[in-house]
């Protein structure tokens, strides 16, 4: 019996799409039952899923009262990572990574940034959660609920000080993919939320999925044509932080040429195992009589802070509160010749 199209209140319910290709889902069956995993193990499983699975999803990004839809496609094939993140409305920007090549399409600036990264960074491993992480965050499973008709574990990562953000994650029971995530500030207020509207786990994603939708005719292309992994100049000063926020340590030191930059940039990475901050140092003499003015910027919930020290511009960027990047950038000092990279 045909039903008329109804328009009651539930017409306005949301429909979400969720697909799990059979083979991928079958391969997901874990040796342990999901209830046996500790909260920290769920985070590790989630990181593993995000970095090793093939998936194609659409999600909403909420921050500061603005909502936009994005699409993410991720593939690991023969050890090569390919990823595409595209804004479906608004800016129309796209980020495409294929192996060690990163391309950022900025249609609103009619610019494409292309950066070649060292091949060894193609599959970066991240610090595992350890006792030190436990001293900085409280990781708990606070619930087990259904989201999008999927069983999820709700894991919270609560910072113990104000140098970092907290997370609330809805992790899919069978695939360990985060179906929903919230980022909270030190006061517990949600400042960013991502929710998958559709997600497809596939065994195979074609190369064509990693091509940009936009036409780049007439765009300005900025590339880093220099060697992607420079050894620090032996005569150049080594930059290091005099003091760091609790739990942070430097894990990477490298020199690189960024697209469009005039010279090599020192890149230092600091992490507490969960959050990370990059510090970029490049030569920038201040004209006589002009005082350098520190600048702050935000990219969503992430922060940036820039200042000039001893003729060098120091910029800290990270998914941490503004005070943290400001603190780290202000602690950087030049100390003798730079050691070997990494």
């Amino acid at each position: 019996m045909p039903r008329p199209l109804r328009s009651n209140g539930r017409l306005f319910s949301l429909a979400l799409a969720w697909a799990v290709a059979g083979a991928a889902a079958a391969a997901e069956v874990a040796q342990k039952t999901s209830s046996e995993f500790a909260p920290a193990q769920w985070l590790e499983r989630m990181d593993h899923a995000l970095t090793t699975r093939n998936y194609d999803g659409t999600f909403s990004h909420w921050q500061g009262g603005r909502v936009e839809m994005l699409r993410i496609i991720h593939r690991v094939q023969d050890g090569v990572v390919a990823e595409r993140l595209a804004s479906l409305d608004g800016s129309g920007r796209e980020f495409i990574r294929t192996g060690s090549s990163l391309a950022c399409y900025l249609p609103d600036r009619r610019t494409v940034l292309v950066e070649q990264r060292p091949a060894e960074e193609s599959l970066v491993s991240f610090p595992t959660l350890n006792d030190q992480t436990a001293s900085l965050y409280t990781i708990r499973e606070v619930g087990h609920t259904r989201l999008n008709h999927r069983e999820t574990h709700v894991i919270t990562v609560s910072p113990k000080d104000e140098y970092r953000y907290g997370y609330r994650l809805w992790i899919d029971d069978s695939t360990a993919m985060p179906l929903k995530s919230q980022l909270s500030d030190a006061h517990g207020a949600v400042i960013e939320q991502l929710v998958f509207a559709s997600l497809t786990l596939s065994t195979r994603i074609p190369d064509s999925a990693f091509r940009p939708d936009i036409s780049t005719e007439g765009f300005r292309w900025l590339r880093n044509d220099a060697a992607p992994h420079l050894q620090p100049d032996a005569a150049a000063p080594a930059w290091s932080a005099m003091t760091l926020p609790p739990g942070f340590r430097m894990t990477v030191r490298s020199a690189q040429v960024l697209p469009g930059s005039a010279g090599p940039v020192d890149h230092l990475v600091f992490t507490d195992g969960f959050a990370s901050v990059s510090v970029f140092v490049e030569r920038q003499p201040t004209p006589p009589g002009q005082a350098a003015v520190p600048e702050s910027a935000t990219v969503g919930s992430s922060s940036a802070f820039s200042t000039v020290v001893d003729g060098h511009k120091i910029t800290a960027v990270g998914e941490v509160p503004p005070e943290t990047v400001r603190f780290i950038a202000s602690q950087l000092k030049a100390q003798g010749p730079a050691p070997a990279s990494h």
């Binding site: 989630m46 990181d47 995000l50 970095t51 999600f59 990004h61 921050q63 603005r66 936009e68 994005l70 993410i72 993140l85 595209a86 804004s87 608004g90 800016s91 920007r93 796209e94 980020f95 991240f126 997370y167 994650l169 985060p178 995530s181 980022l183 960013e192 991502l194 992490t271 969960f274 959050a275 990370s276 990219v299 969503g300 919930s301 992430s302 998914e319």
Partner: peptide, 14 residues
Amino acid sequence: PPMARRNLLSAFMT
């Protein structure tokens, strides 16, 4: 880290 990375790039895109 993977989750932070997704947040960062998403914020940049939007």
